[in-house]
Simulated assay, not measured.
Amino acid sequence: MSLSVRRRPLTAALLASTTCLGLLTACGFSSETGTEAGSSGSKASAGGGSFPVALTNAWGRTEVKEKPVRVATVSDGDTAIALALGLVPVITPDVEDGDPVAEYKQRAIAKLGEKKLKTYDDTDGTDYEAIAAEEPDVILGVNTWDMDTDYAKLSPIAPVVTFADKKQSDTLTWQERLRTAAKALGLTEKADAVIAANEKTLKDAAAAHPEFTGKTYTYSVVHPEQITYMSYADQDPGVFEQLGLVKHPRSKDYSANKNGVSLENLDELESDVLLMTYPFGDEGLLSASELETNKLFRSLDVVKKKHFAVVPSENTLASAIAYPDALSAPWVVENLTPILAKAVAGK
């Protein structure tokens, strides 16, 4: 699946990815989309669509009578949608929890003429009173796991744009979520432009690195309880594969429910390229230094030939790969491509 939900703190996000990693399926915000600057009190350029718009969802029916201007969001993924479509939300959840705003998100905010977003504390869940106080025209909730609880309290505030079936909280791609939101916002053409620009970003990067084509890869995350084989066979093709890499044949032995690699079986990670991330630091099963000095790990051909690389977690790259959205993808390609290039070259 291609999961794009509220971005929680990185360690929690990647802990969830033990059984559910949504590898990147395309890119997000880009200067190539032509997104115009806007603000919480102004409209982004319309991209087709007439009003009223009626959308059926898992909890009822949403009608947006006029083109929305003031948009509130209930997840980081929904905030990404608004920003990618050229809208600064009137209020968003404070998903950073005091950490720096992700670079790609700050870029988008600055591009839209703002320094930071107005947020509410989401430690205890959605703050309905804070959202109501901003008098939004519409509330975006297409990237959240909490709508079953939230819908009844949000719908009296403003029309809620969310998924048509509860199962879609896990299954929709970010492109599908973007298009759903865009329909309610009258920005369908803008959404199409964002998606097209994202696809071009990936194609251009793949074309610039023909050496990636056909190389097998393994991507693993060191969680507190295990080393997780994330690039299992039925995982959706994502950014690694769209850049030309292919899953190792051994990936067929792993799945979302069977993805642990023991220290005795580190040779299961063998491939042309090995990529790992350590989002839990010293709280992981073992630290980077402990794993990378392990005799069995050091004996792997992929390690000895220097085709091994670490995907950093401290700059949110690992999280952005795990939770793709409409905003982060060009930044992911920008940051991941040089890592892959060095690993493929054995540098």
Results as ranks from 00 to 15, higher is better:
1 M>V: 15
1 M>E: 11
3 L>N: 05
5 V>Y: 04
7 R>F: 11
12 A>Y: 02
12 A>S: 04
13 A>Y: 03
13 A>F: 04
15 L>V: 01
21 L>N: 09
24 L>V: 05
26 A>T: 13
27 C>R: 11
29 F>V: 05
35 T>H: 06
39 S>Y: 01
41 G>W: 12
45 S>P: 11
47 G>V: 09
52 P>A: 08
55 L>P: 11
56 T>N: 15
59 W>L: 10
64 V>E: 14
67 K>P: 13
68 P>Q: 06
68 P>V: 11
69 V>R: 06
70 R>I: 07
71 V>T: 02
76 D>Q: 15
77 G>V: 05
79 T>P: 09
83 L>A: 00
85 L>K: 03
86 G>P: 06
93 P>F: 07
96 E>V: 06
97 D>Y: 11
99 D>F: 08
101 V>H: 02
106 Q>H: 10
106 Q>N: 09
106 Q>I: 10
106 Q>C: 05
108 A>P: 00
113 G>P: 02
136 P>G: 02
137 D>Y: 05
143 N>V: 00
147 M>I: 14
150 D>R: 13
151 Y>L: 10
152 A>M: 07
153 K>M: 14
165 D>T: 08
172 L>V: 01
172 L>W: 13
175 Q>I: 14
177 R>N: 01
178 L>M: 12
181 A>S: 14
182 A>G: 14
184 A>N: 13
186 G>E: 07
189 E>C: 07
190 K>V: 15
190 K>A: 15
193 A>V: 04
194 V>S: 09
194 V>P: 11
197 A>I: 00
202 L>V: 15
204 D>G: 06
213 T>I: 09
214 G>Q: 05
216 T>P: 05
218 T>R: 05
236 D>H: 03
236 D>V: 11
242 Q>G: 10
243 L>Y: 00
243 L>W: 01
249 P>H: 02
253 D>P: 02
256 A>M: 13
256 A>R: 13
260 G>T: 15
262 S>V: 12
266 L>H: 11
266 L>P: 11
274 L>H: 06
274 L>N: 04
276 M>E: 13
281 G>P: 02
284 G>D: 03
285 L>V: 11
292 E>D: 11
301 D>L: 02
309 A>G: 08
316 T>D: 15
318 A>G: 14
320 A>T: 12
322 A>T: 04
326 A>K: 02
326 A>I: 06
327 L>C: 07
327 L>M: 07
332 V>A: 09
335 N>I: 01
336 L>H: 07
337 T>E: 07
338 P>W: 03
339 I>F: 13
341 A>H: 13
